[in-house]
């Protein structure tokens, strides 16, 4: 029992108390439900891997998005993690393809460009199909540094390099925005075309 609690406690967002609750819940559940969970976990380990092209999680060699011919192959969106792909897909705004870096540059954690899928990105761009790169790394220090690094690396290749806008949340009040966000929104203001 303690082994199970310890293992659950390693999961992100699960503290010792929650781990104990989950463990006891599993103990009291229908064995059929638990076997289904075990099967799902085993399947994830056995079948899910990373797309050879974009690095996103995938069941096949090439992920669903990379193999979808209806996707626009000229626009590439660069994100840090697979979960960012899920977030952007939910918007249904973006019809291009992705490139998952697998993190952000952070010397403190010993992560440099060589530890990210930067080489794969450059290789992918060699074919010349991609004309625009959207840098969608997190708007924090490490994400910004990664974006700056990539922009400098890719600019000489003659690509259009863009960065996601930072600014005011939609549906919010201006007065509640913090100074940094408001300042960024000012920097990124755009012409209103009417």
């Amino acid at each position: 029992m303690q082994d199970l609690i310890d293992e659950l406690g390693h999961l992100p967002g699960v503290g010792p108390k929650s781990a104990q609750r989950i463990a006891f819940h599993i103990l009291q559940s229908d064995p059929v439900d638990v076997r289904r969970l075990v099967a799902a976990l085993t399947e994830v380990i056995d079948k899910v891997r990373f797309c050879v092209s974009c690095g996103n999680v995938s069941a096949e060699e090439l992920c669903r998005i990379c193999s979808d011919a209806r996707r626009d192959g000229t626009v590439l969106c660069v994100v840090e993690e697979s979960k960012d792909v899920v977030a952007i897909e939910k918007t249904r705004e973006f019809r291009g393809r992705y490139h998952v870096l697998g993190g952000a540059i952070s010397p403190i954690e010993g992560v440099g460009p060589d530890d990210l899928r930067v080489k794969e990105l450059v290789t992918r761009l060699a074919s010349g199909e991609v004309t625009e790169i959207i840098l969608a790394t997190d708007p924090n220090l490490e994400g910004e540094a990664t974006a700056t690094y990539l922009a400098r690396l890719l600019k000489p290749m003659g690509l259009r390099v863009t960065r996601l806008a930072s600014g005011l949340p939609v549906g919010g009040d201006l007065e509640y925005a913090d100074e940094l966000t408001l300042g960024r929104a000012f920097e990124g203001r755009r012409l209103l075309d009417v």
């Binding site: 540059i105 952070s106 010397p107 403190i108 010993g110 440099g112 460009p113 060589d114 220090l141 490490e142 540094a145 700056t148 690094y149 400098r152």
Partner: peptide, 26 residues
């Protein structure tokens, strides 16, 4: 972050390896 990079680069240089300074400009 910058100090961590410089420290790692200095260590690599002393060990006779080529330091990774590709992100220093950033």
């Amino acid at each position: 972050q910058r100090n961590a990079l410089l420290k790692a680069a200095g260590k690599a240089r002393r060990a006779g390896r080529k330091p990774d300074l590709s992100t220093l400009d950033v």
